[in-house]
């Protein structure tokens, strides 16, 4: 009994070291820009870099666009599948999983082939069109997380009966989605949204190959040319991701009417 416990602790400690050591190393290294003492110089350099602001701002904007597009696409779809096409659920689920199986590089090459300037829909011919293409690409990448999150949220609702109750009270489809379904899967949507945010902020392949000034390529550029700043950037990127995770927890806790589900 005692021995087994010891092994459990050992495994846990090993696991923690495996995850924490590189992080601690990176953090430590990022603070050593000034010779002989710890300082925040690397962070200062990064945060005052105008490229950091431009690329980070671009990626945040893209992430928000992806979230909105994802919600508009996924919530009605998941709702309709649950309500009217339950037999299609495995098919839809499989489709939404495809982005995890098909590498982004394949997706983006497909896009470039389909939508290049000599195609029937030359999206890559303009900045706006390319941004749109990037947005669509991100939405595809975020699909597995978004769909799963929303579908799980819908599972905790009696979708069919709530829909009928709203219908008998005179509500049409838009009202039902907006006033009944959306507010009740908000926590699920938000957790999907924060995951999407984290993915889009760090995404490299789509942005690089579509030649858009996103945060991912900027990180790569810094990483290839500087010593201490990439470490600082990595720590910043981690902080953003963790902030997102923290926000998911916070939002879940603040939703009054979801308290019963946590009990």
């Amino acid at each position: 009994m005692r021995g087994r416990r010891l092994w459990a602790w050992l495994a846990l400690i090993l696991g923690m070291i495996y995850f924490a050591l590189p992080l601690i190393g990176t953090l430590e290294f990022s603070l050593r820009m000034r010779r002989g003492e710890y300082s925040l110089d690397a962070y200062r350099v990064i945060l005052s870099d105008p490229h950091f602001h431009a690329t980070f701002g671009f990626s945040v904007l893209m992430a928000l666009g992806t979230i909105v597009l994802g919600v508009l696409l996924v919530v009605p779809t998941a709702y309709w599948v649950r309500l009217r096409l339950p037999r299609w659920r495995p098919v839809i689920e499989f489709l939404t999983l495809l982005p995890l199986v098909i590498p982004p590089i394949v997706v983006v090459f497909g896009y470039i082939r389909l939508y290049n300037t000599s195609s029937w829909l030359p999206l890559t011919g303009s900045v706006g069109g390319t941004n749109l293409l990037l947005l669509f690409g991100y939405t595809v990448l975020a699909l597995p997380y978004m769909y799963r999150a929303v579908d799980t949220g819908l599972r905790s609702l009696d979708v069919a009966t709530l829909t009928e109750a709203a219908q008998s009270l005179g509500a049409g489809w838009i009202t039902i989605l907006w006033r009944v379904i959306l507010p009740n899967v908000l926590v699920a949507i938000l957790s999907g949204a924060f995951l999407t945010f984290a993915i889009v902020i760090g995404e490299f392949v789509l942005a690089a190959l579509l030649n858009r000034p996103a945060f991912g390529p900027f990180m790569q550029l810094i990483g290839a040319n500087r010593a201490y700043e990439p470490a600082a950037l990595a720590v910043i990127a981690f902080a953003i991701t963790w902030l997102c995770m923290g926000l998911i927890q916070l939002v879940t806790r603040f939703q009054k009417h979801t308290q019963i589900r946590q009990r």
Partner: peptide
């Protein structure tokens, strides 16, 4: 007529109250 055009009140076995309201 669609259900939302019939002006009918319905009460369900599972109450079906909107949990967010």
């Amino acid at each position: 007529f669609k259900p939302n055009q019939r002006n009918i009140g319905m009460v369900f076995q599972s109450y079906a109250l909107f949990p967010n309201l």
